[in-house]
Design a protein around this nucleic acid. Structure first.
Lengths: 345, 345
DNA sequence: CCAGTCGACTGAACCGGGTAAGTGCGTCGA
DNA sequence: TCGACGCACTTACCCGGTTCAGTCGACTGG
C-alpha cells in the first residue's frame, strides 16, 4: 500500500500542491468549495501527513521524551517511576502527545540521547528526573535550548523550570511524629547521595534531629533497590545502638526492611518502627501496613507534563511547587520499647 | 545555537554535500583521507543527523511503538504492563531503539494512531497487546504492512507474528492442582471476555473442569481492576453454593479478592483457596502469600521486542511460544474445608 | 598511444510537505 | 474604459539528508 501524498490529492482535485497544503491546514488562500473538495479527497484516500516532511519544515513532533538512567528491569519493580509515567501519559494522551522513553546505562549516554533527539527534532521537549547535585545535563539542555522541565528539586539553576515537592518539610513531619511517639534514636536509609533530593532530605533530617534533641542522625546510603535496603536495615538492626525507628527513602526498601526485621526476630512496631517514602499499594498490603510519606505521584507527573507543554508552547512558565508528601500513620509505627525511648513521656 | 548541517560540513571540508553524506555513512565513494577530514569536522562542530530529513529519504526511525488502550492511571497499578514494558525496554535499549508509548481511550483511536504513525513514519514497527476475539486492528496493520508483533495468542490470523504463552495449559495445571487438593467447586474471576486469551482460558477452564468432574465451571467476567475483582469475589463468596477455590485472571484482582475474604470473615486458605495469575511481588507480600501462576513477564516482553526487530529487519520471523506459566504454590491454597471437598481423598 | 577502467568526487533530483512571491482574473470605483 | 485591488490559485524554492548519473583525471593493458 503506497502512502498517499499531497501531490496525489492535488492531482485528484485538479489543483496544485500549494493549494492542497493551504486547504489542509486551514490557511486562507483557497475557496471554501475547494477546501471541502480537498479535505474530502484526503479523507477518502486515507492521507496522513508525513511527520518527517513536516518536521523538515520546522513543525513540532508532538512527542515528549524521557530518558531513564537505570537498569530497564527495575522499571517494572519500582512503583515510583511507573506511577510518574502513568501521570505524564494521562496528560499527554489527552492532548494527543506521545511519550518516548529511552533507557540508558550512564550519564554520557543520556546526554548523547538529548543531543540526538535535539538534532533529529524527534521530541519537542524533555522531562528530566533524578537531578544530581551538580548535574551536567542542565548545562547541555540549556545550550541546546531544548524545552525542559525538571522533575524534582532544581535548586538555583536559573533558566530551567521544575516541578518539585518540599522533601525537607516531609522529613520534618516524619521525624517530628516519631519524636512525639518517644523515639530518640532514629536512623535513615537514604537513596543515592549524589542526587539533589537525597541531599535535601539528608540535610533536613540532620537538622530536625538536632533541633528535637534526637540522637545523632545516621543516614545509610543505598541505591534504592530492595537488596540494598535490606542490607542497610540488617546493618542498622544489628548495631550496638540499635535505632528504634527507621525512615526509608522509598517504599521498596521499606518493605525489604520489614522483611529483614521479621527475619531477625524483631517485631514491628513493638521493637522498631518503620516509615516508608512514597506510598504505593505495596505499603498497604504488607503486615503490618507501613506508615508512609504519601503523595499523589501520578498527579506529580501530570503537572510536570503540563508544565512542559507550556514551555514548549513558549508560554512563560515558572517552577511549581507540588503537594508536600504527608505522613499516613499505619501499623508500622508505635512508641519505642520501654527503656529505649523518651522517659519523660 | 544553530544546528549544523552536512552543507556546513561540506563547505568547511571543501567538498560537496554528496561526498559528505558518503563519508559520514561509511559508503564507498570517498578517499580515506577525505572521510577522516569530514568526520573530524562533523565531530568538531557538533553535527547530528536530522532524523526528519533522513526519514524523508526512507530511513528507519529506530523507534518502536506501543499503544495502550486503557486509562493511563492504571499503568502505575497494573504490574503486568510495567513489567512487560521494562522487558521490552531492556532489549530495545541495548540496541539504541526507543519506545514510544501512546495511551488511547478506545479502539478507533488506537487504529487512528497506527495510521498516523505509519503515515508519519514515526515508528519502524509496533507491538500489539490485548488481542480481541475478532480484532479489527489486525486487518488494518496488515493493510498498512506496518511491521507488527502481537503479544499474546494470535490464533489463526496468518501473516502476523506473535509471541504467546500457553494459557490453556496453565489453567489446566492450576485446576488439576486444586482438584488434587480435593476441591470440587472451583470458580474463576476472569478478565475481559472479548479478549482472545480470556476466551482461551475460559474454554480450557470449562474443559478441564468437565474432565476432572469438578462442579460446573463458573467464570465471572471483570475488567481486571481490583474493584471489579472484589465485586466478583463478594458475589462468589456470598452465593449459596460457595466455591472452595477461586482462580483469578490477574494478581491485582486476586489481592482484592483476598481482602474481600478477610472482610467477610473467611479464612484463606482454610475456608477458601485463592490462585492468582501473574506473579508480581504483590503476591508474595500479602498474608497469606498467594499461590500464583508465574511467568517471567519482562522476558516475555523482551522476546516480543526481539521478534519485532527481526520483522523490521525483514528477517523471516515465525510466531514463538514463550514459557508456559507454572504454578507456584504458596499459603493461599490448601485442602477444602471438611465436608465440602472430595470425600474420597 | 589510446581505449578502457576505476576511484574520487560533483551536481542535481528526490523525499513530502510549508510558504513567500508571483500570476491571472473578476470586480469595483473613478 | 482604465487602473487598482483582492481573491484564488500556481510556481518555485526551502528544509537536510540520500542517491544516482555523470565528470574528470590517473592508471592500466594491449
Amino acid at each position: 500500500m503506497k502512502r498517499p501524498t499531497i501531490a496525489d490529492i492535488a492531482q485528484l482535485a485538479g489543483v496544485s500542491k500549494g493549494a492542497v497544503s493551504y486547504a489542509l491546514n486551514g490557511q486562507p488562500g483557497v475557496s471554501e468549495s475547494t477546501r471541502r473538495r480537498v479535505l474530502a479527497i484526503a479523507e477518502e484516500i486515507g492521507w496522513n501527513p508525513n511527520g518527517a516532511a513536516r518536521a523538515l519544515s520546522g513543525a513540532p513532533s508532538n512527542t515528549v521524551g524521557m530518558v531513564l538512567r537505570r537498569p530497564a528491569r527495575i522499571l517494572g519493580v519500582e512503583p515510583f517511576f511507573m506511577e510518574l509515567i502513568s501521570g505524564v501519559e494521562a496528560e499527554l494522551a489527552a492532548r494527543s502527545y506521545a511519550l518516548t522513553l529511552q533507557v540508558v546505562a550512564d550519564q554520557p549516554a543520556e546526554i548523547a540521547v538529548y543531543r540526538r533527539w535535539w538534532g533529529e527534532r524527534r521530541v519537542d521537549g524533555v522531562l528530566v528526573c533524578d537531578l544530581g547535585v551538580d548535574d551536567p545535563r542542565i548545562q547541555v539542555l540549556k545550550e541546546l535550548t531544548l524545552p525542559t522541565v525538571v522533575v524534582g528539586t532544581l535548586g538555583k539553576s536559573a533558566g530551567l523550570v521544575s516541578v518539585w515537592s518540599d522533601d525537607a518539610a516531609a522529613v520534618v513531619e516524619a521525624v517530628e511524629y516519631l519524636s512525639a511517639l518517644g523515639h530518640r534514636h532514629i536512623a535513615r536509609v537514604g537513596g543515592l547521595p549524589e542526587l539533589r533530593h537525597t541531599a535535601a532530605r539528608t540535610e533536613a533530617f540532620e537538622e530536625v534531629c538536632r533541633r528535637l534533641d534526637v540522637a545523632p542522625a545516621l543516614t545509610i546510603s543505598t541505591d534504592y533497590t530492595g537488596e540494598d535496603g535490606a542490607r542497610a536495615t540488617r546493618r542498622l538492626l544489628s548495631s550496638r545502638q540499635r535505632p528504634t525507628a527507621i525512615l526509608y527513602d522509598n517504599d521498596v526498601m521499606a518493605i525489604a526492611g520489614l522483611a529483614v526485621a521479621h527475619e531477625m526476630g524483631l517485631s514491628v512496631p513493638a521493637d522498631v518502627s518503620l516509615v516508608a517514602w512514597d506510598d504505593s499499594v505495596l505499603c498497604q498490603l504488607v503486615h503490618p501496613p507501613l506508615t508512609a510519606l504519601s503523595r499523589d505521584i501520578p498527579a506529580y507527573g501530570g503537572h510536570a507534563a503540563l508544565q512542559l507543554l507550556d514551555v514548549i508552547a513558549g508560554l512563560p512558565a515558572v517552577s511549581v511547587q507540588d503537594e508536600t508528601a504527608h505522613l499516613i500513620p499505619r501499623g508500622s509505627t508505635a512508641a519505642p520499647p520501654p527503656g529505649r525511648g523518651d522517659q519523660t513521656r
